[in-house]
Design a protein around this nucleic acid. Structure first.
Lengths: 233, 233
DNA sequence: TGCTGTTCTTGATGCACGTCAAGGTTTTAT
DNA sequence: ATAAAACCTTGACGTGCATCAAGAACAGCA
């Protein structure tokens, strides 16, 4: 806690209001309701590399990302890291323990300078009871994530590493809506996300390049030349 | 639809009321509220092997299992099956598409004779708005499933097949609270759930038996002799 | 600007596990 | 009760990918 003081900053009401209002699950509320939430939430900043929470920590509430990106990952017994997901502004975390367990089983780390809104467990539940429409929004967000996670699990379980990399690139194209995509993370993290190693990522990418399906520009810039060929590999 | 007629049976109000009241997310409602839900839901029976919905089907609502078990699985491009989860009485499915997409990307199949409650998408949303406490219950269920799925994905990505089988057995012990556990599914399905093959499951189990950590009784009966040794393998 | 610590690439090696195959056992259906 | 179908086990074999290692490219920072 003494250590935290050095790394984060509490903000005034003004900044908090901004913080809440930018977040999709809250941004349709009217000014009065917004105000009510602002009173119950805090705004916090951390700089790059800061560990926001770690496995074993008591879950103290809901974290909503306002600015910057946050990496959620797990560690296996043998110390290997598995990237669960990356939070962009508007995303939130801490929900898992909001309703059931009260202990985190993953780690959250600031990938860059971040600003977060934090709301206590009980406060959040009260809000959901009072504003059922928000509960539906959260439910909707959960169902999206659940679908994505189930798909990801199935993919790791059934497809070859090569196919997974190809599918990932295809997803990026769809997400970024252009054929020259930017990897949102390092190859190391990508490997961890796809359940493989950095070496294999490297090799598969050069394989794809040799096959004429992609072109690797600067580090994280990749141009997809033949999406179809890629996908039926 | 003509085909469905042969396999399912609509039930009267009496049976429906039972159906709803047995389900955890609804069973704390008072009689009047219960009645209101009953009016909006249907009760349906299917016999073993019936495909309740399949990938590509439009999602027509929420399915709550009342009796029997239902297998949810996916098919990869190359036709391999991945078991996502098994629904026990009280569990529900169809939620993913309740809020976002309207098309299933998985298959639901009756493992035995089943009875289901079915509620339309809109009706369900109205209920959640009217009874926020139910929304919280559903949210809680979602968060549990999300946690479980993320853990499962991480496990498949990071641990060896052997470790996964060991962890699965350990989870069973915890779940069933006894050291002679019963596998809830065939080895074929277990393999699909753990992202491996029936052959490998067979081999690992005999390995464990040879090491003196477990004993295999009748088909699905396994006695765990040394849980600790199993887990640090 | 250069220094230092990451990240990326490429090669060589080994093994865990998937695949194919064949025989035995249990379940289902008639 | 018996046949048919599905499931389980064990063996032999091949390979995709992790691992170890070492050099190259890059990024952060004085």
């Amino acid at each position: 806690m003494a250590d935290m003081k050095k790394h984060h900053t509490e903000c005034g009401q003004e900044s908090q209001k901004l913080c809440i209002s930018i977040v999709p699950i809250f941004n349709h509320l009217d000014p009065y309701e917004m105000q009510e939430i602002v009173k119950e939430s805090r705004s916090i900043s951390h700089k790059k590399g800061y560990t926001i929470y770690q496995a074993g920590d008591k879950s103290d509430g809901l974290y909503i990302v306002h600015k910057g990106r946050v990496k959620i990952y797990r560690l296996s017994d043998n110390g290997k890291e598995q990237l669960v997901r990356i939070l962009e502004p508007g995303d939130f975390t801490g929900e898992l323990s909001l309703f059931n367990e009260s202990v985190h089983d993953a780690y959250a780390e600031a990938l860059e300078s971040v600003e977060l809104c934090v709301m206590g467990r009980d406060n959040f539940q009260q809000f959901l009871l009072k504003y059922p429409a928000i509960a539906l929004k959260v439910l909707s967000e959960f169902s999206t994530r659940l679908a994505k996670t189930e798909k990801q699990a199935a993919s790791i379980a059934m497809e070859s590493t090569e196919t997974r990399v190809a599918i990932y690139l295809a997803d990026l194209v769809e997400e970024q809506k252009r054929s020259d995509v930017t990897l949102p993370m390092s190859r190391k993290d990508l490997a961890s996300y796809l359940g493989t190693t950095p070496e294999t990522i490297s090799r598969k990418l050069t394989d794809f390049e040799n096959a004429g399906w992609i072109m690797q520009n600067e580090q994280r810039e990749i141009i997809i030349l033949d999406l179809d060929a890629l996908l039926l590999a």
